[in-house]
Design a protein around this nucleic acid. Structure first.
Length: 931
RNA sequence: GGGUCUAUAGCUCAGUUGGUCAGAGCGCACGCCUGAUAAGCGUGAGGUCGGUAGUUCAAAUCUACCUAGACCCA
């Protein structure tokens, strides 16, 4: 007869193959329909808050693997916090304003449509565009298994958000942190608009190339020669002669050597390395370097005369000067160049002068050049220079020049009025705030401090339409800028109802309080500011706009968690607005994740073909595998991802899943109410693994608290593989299958498996929510009280379980087990045995203590080694036995005595001797009898 | 060019304040099992700790330089 029916084999419907890509959707549906997220959060109402504030992704395009990494990490944080007992609601958000969307919307229109478009229409289209992508991304984020208030996210374009944002702006304005200044921007004279760097295209263009002599203002000595102002010059080179009227300075590199060259009776200052170049280009054959090399530091703050304006030109130092072209002496017009602005204006305080109108024509201030175009001025300038004999050379060259993305025309670099936030005013406070934040990893503090220390003032203005208007008015009479509580309250009221598009819909009078008059001059007519705010001001206000306005949130946030690029971005702008308004950082902790790179550590790019798409991963493997990949990586560094890496994670997943499956199969007849064996009454091996489980709980909990998910991953995986699968489950199978159904030994094992399962499923729930929920549902009646794993509690660490004596004893026994395994393998290689149950083992301890141990535990050794018999033999010698490397025990492997029991498959001398059950051993016979 | 980082077996990670032959799991190879079976068990082979030069009795661990890579800025 077959005895298979008399044993308790695993029994479960829990599928070995997960089929995650399809089944995950079922669980997501269950969560959504039953409001599990809401219930889980509500479950912790009144408990300590743990608020992770979401950095808003930009509402454009589909999510990529970097988004997935970041959002999944956030999900780990909030799910763990909730299970651990914190009140941790998660409100996701989106960043919706800004150039890329405006750009995209415009480029989808014909030229005519674009021309006919009103600002309000444009903004409506932008709104729709953003909303469309929010919907798309929302579904994609939800598909990752990220939970949160997806039905009520925060959007930077929502009226309530905009109101808070201009409130933040107003608070800063009241503290006098804003000022109006000029700054050069890319300007298209045809489209009459400023362009962002993304809208600039560089292309070949023909330009005049001129070398110009600037006369010294006074005589000075340098490099051992004395220079006379009548015949001594600094030589500059430029390809934009029209910017010369705005010249304010000449920049020299502080480190390169300069010299004086004598040529044609004149003394010329230039970089030593470029002398021969310049002479060759200018066609001068006879020249001589008449000075020693000298540092430009000797020239700093001396002056030249402007070649044709009634003005001086200051000699200054700048690291941006190169020796690739020109003379090493750089014409500097702070109104017409970026470096010129930074060095000339911000470092040397020179005027930002750009006498030019929106169409690119020179203004009245430009004197002779008034009304002229840049092309005309190019010619006039060179003529003037020739006239004064200050033009060393004129030629034409082809070079890379910026063009407008739309009309393809040449761009100008031109200073326009901008609003700035003064960083200097709050720098000290900000640096202090940084040191009060906990940075993970810790180098973040230094990175942030360096960044803030070096940061110059924040240009808030953007000459665009898709954004939050800068809520400032200008009095038409006195031209003063007006912003105060009265004007702000009025604007806020209107924005709260109609959103910030109202700024474009209504004239200033409607936006201001009724009959408002200028606080400076009593004037009653006003003009609105046309610029919008930098989008970093949008998201940088989120801590106020979200944390302060939502009832379930609170300021400041416990955590910001973003990619490392956000030191410059969101961490930075949020910090500045928070310090400006509240005097401290908006976060207690900042965590950063690295970027996703390919398996060689290179960044992903379409052209490299190494891009891993989260959608594909989900289709092929499932979101839980993607999440496992996130968990497996030390995200503080850059995170590698490739097919191979994902495949590896799916193998790890399989091991975890099969551990669950084994347990589920073996507790199918287990009723916790009736069959649970309490810890003290369990078998030693069961107690041993329970202690191992406590170690695991301790390690895993601590790893979660430190955001070290890769430690969770490794610890849990090792536990499943080493402790559980190859040891505990392998050994316990015999008890579970063949001992009496209701025997203490079997119930003891089941109770243990149950305890382990309950701890594991909760501990992995933040990482593998779908699988954990699936397991939870399969536990069925046993956990009926809780409808979802996410409504349960974090496993409790049972310190009382610890038992040093037992732990030490089992460490010894398991060492011996390793040696026995090795000995069995040798026997197997000799074809003496196949299955280890075909073996009987003889042992000899290597020490008194070990001999005693073996003697005491003899009873359970066969089960522990999964062999049929174990005997002690103090006659064993090294010649006939294997000497264990781990424990020094001597092991001799023999064929097992007796015959194979048909029921438990062990060999035993009692087999074949029974009356009723001939083919099975005594133990099995008695089990059958008693069932 | 500047700021901040990273570099340990094919892969993912451990390696406290420098000190026993550098560890784990996976993968791989080989074997076993066929009552966890598109599972499970065992054994084994894989590393000049990115490179070079130093400090030291002693360095994967400290210093300098170099190489490769990442983010931000210029």
């Amino acid at each position: 007869m077959s005895y298979k029916d008399t044993i308790n084999l695993p029994n479960t419907e829990f599928p070995m193959r997960a089929n995650l890509s399809e089944r995950e959707l079922d669980f997501q549906k269950i969560w959504e329909e039953n409001n599990i997220y809401e219930k889980a959060v509500k479950n912790r109402e009144g408990k300590e808050s743990f608020i992770l504030h979401d950095g808003p992704p930009y509402a454009n395009g589909d999510i990529h693997i970097g988004h997935a990494l970041n959002k999944i990490l956030k999900d780990f944080v909030t799910r763990f916090a909730t299970l651990k007992g914190y009140y941790s609601p998660y409100v996701p958000g989106w960043d919706t304003h800004g150039l890329p969307i405006e750009h995209q919307v415009k480029s989808e229109m014909s030229d005519q449509e674009r021309k006919d478009l009103s600002v309000e229409e444009l903004r409506e289209k932008c709104t729709n565009y953003a909303l469309k992508y929010i919907d798309r991304q929302r579904e994609q984020f939800k598909r990752l298994g990220v939970w949160g208030e997806w039905d009520a996210p925060y959007l930077t374009l929502s009226p309530e958000y905009e109101v808070k944002q201009i409130e933040v702006f107003g608070e800063m304005a009241k503290k006098d942190l804003f000022y109006r200044g000029k700054k050069p921007v890319h300007w298209c004279p045809h489209c009459e608009t400023a362009l962002a760097e993304a809208e600039v295209e560089y292309g070949e263009d023909r330009a005049p190339s001129i070398y110009v002599k600037f006369p010294l203002k006074e005589k000075f000595e340098v490099g051992g020669v004395s220079l006379n102002k009548d015949n001594s010059y600094v030589v500059i080179w430029t390809t934009t002669p029209w910017t010369l009227p705005a010249n304010m300075a000449i920049a020299f590199h502080p480190e390169y050597p300069y010299v004086v060259v004598e040529a044609e009776g004149e003394n010329l200052i230039m970089a030593k390395e470029l002398v021969s170049n310049v002479m060759e280009i200018s066609g001068i054959e006879e020249y001589e370097i008449i000075s020693d090399e000298f540092s430009a530091k000797e020239l700093e703050n001396k002056k030249c005369r402007h070649p044709f304006e009634d003005r001086d030109s200051l000699l200054i130092l700048g690291e941006h000067v190169t020796l690739e072209q020109g003379t090493g002496c750089v014409h500097t017009a702070p109104g017409h160049g970026h470096d010129d602005f930074v060095v000339g204006h911000q470092e040397y305080g020179l005027d930002v002068y750009a006498p030019m109108d929106n169409r690119g024509y020179f203004t009245e201030k430009a004197g002779d050049f008034a009304g002229k175009s840049t092309d005309e001025v190019n010619i006039m300038v060179t003529d003037k220079l020739k006239e004064k004999n200050l033009l060393m050379d004129l030629s034409f060259i082809d070079h890379q020049y910026p063009h407008c993305w739309r009309c393809k025309g040449n761009l100008l670099f031109r200073a326009t009025d901008q609003w700035f936030a003064s960083i200097d005013a709050i720098k000290e406070k900000t640096l202090k705030a940084i040191s009060e934040v906990e940075w993970h990893p810790s180098w973040g503090e230094e990175r942030m401090k360096n960044m803030i220390s070096e940061r110059s003032d924040w240009c808030i203005s953007r000459q665009k339409k898709w954004g939050v208007p800068i809520p400032i008015f200008y009095c038409d009479d006195c031209e003063e800028a007006v912003i105060n509580d009265d004007t702000l309250d009025s604007v806020k009221k209107i924005f709260a109802v109609e959103g910030s598009s109202a700024w474009y819909k209504y004239p200033a009078e409607k936006l201001l309080p009724k009959d408002y008059s200028c606080p400076h001059c009593d004037g009653s007519s006003f003009t609105k500011e046309e610029d919008i705010m930098d989008v970093w001001f949008d998201s940088g206000s989120s801590h106020k706009a979200v944390l302060e306005t939502r009832e379930n949130l609170s300021w400041p946030a416990q955590i910001y968690l973003e990619g490392t690029d956000q030191y410059r971005g969101w961490f930075n702008s949020s910090l500045l607005t928070a310090v400006a308004t509240e005097g401290r950082a908006p976060y207690n902790e900042v965590i950063t994740n690295g970027f996703t790179v390919d398996d060689k550590g290179n960044k992903m790019s379409k052209s490299q073909g190494n891009v891993v798409s989260p959608h594909k991963v989900i289709d092929q493997y499932g979101a839980d595998i993607l999440r496992l990949w996130v968990a497996s990586s030390d995200f503080k560094n850059d995170v590698k991802v490739s097919d191979n890496i994902l495949k590896q994670n799916s193998e790890v997943y399989r091991r975890i899943r099969n551990t669950y499956r084994f347990v589920l199969g073996n507790v199918s007849d287990f009723d916790k109410e009736k069959n649970y064996v309490k810890y003290e009454d369990r078998k030693e091996l069961d107690r041993w693994i329970m202690i191992r489980l406590q170690d695991l709980i301790k390690k895993v909990t601590s790893a979660y608290e430190k955001y070290e998910y890769h430690r969770v991953y490794h610890d849990v995986h090792n536990f499943c593989t080493v402790e559980m699968s190859s040891l505990y489950m392998d050994i316990t199978k015999d008890r579970l299958y063949t001992d009496g159904t209701d025997s203490l030994s079997r119930r003891s094992a089941q109770s243990t498996l149950y305890d382990i399962m309950m701890a594991l499923v909760v501990m992995l729930a933040p990482l593998l929510p779908h699988t954990s929920e699936e397991v939870w549902q399969f536990l069925g009646d046993k956990v009926a009280a809780k409808e979802s794993v996410f409504l349960s509690d974090w496993p409790e660490l049972k310190k009382a379980y610890y038992d040093q004596e037992l732990t030490a004893k089992w460490a010894d026994l398991l060492n011996i087990r390793k040696d026995v395994s090795k000995a069995l393998e040798l026997a197997r290689a000799d074809k003496k045995i196949g299955n280890s149950l075909e073996a009987g083992v003889e042992l000899k301890g290597a020490s008194e203590a070990q001999l005693e141990l073996l003697e005491n535990e003899l009873e359970q050794l066969a089960d522990l080694f999964i062999v049929s018999q174990v005997e002690l033999n103090d006659q064993l010698s090294e010649g006939e036995a294997y000497l264990g490397e781990e424990s020094s025990v001597l092991v001799k492997v023999n064929e097992a005595k007796g015959d194979k029991c048909d029921r438990c498959w062990k060999y035993d001398e009692s087999v074949g001797k029974g009356e009723e059950h001939k083919d099975i051993c005594n133990r099995c016979a008695s089990v059958i009898e008693s069932e």
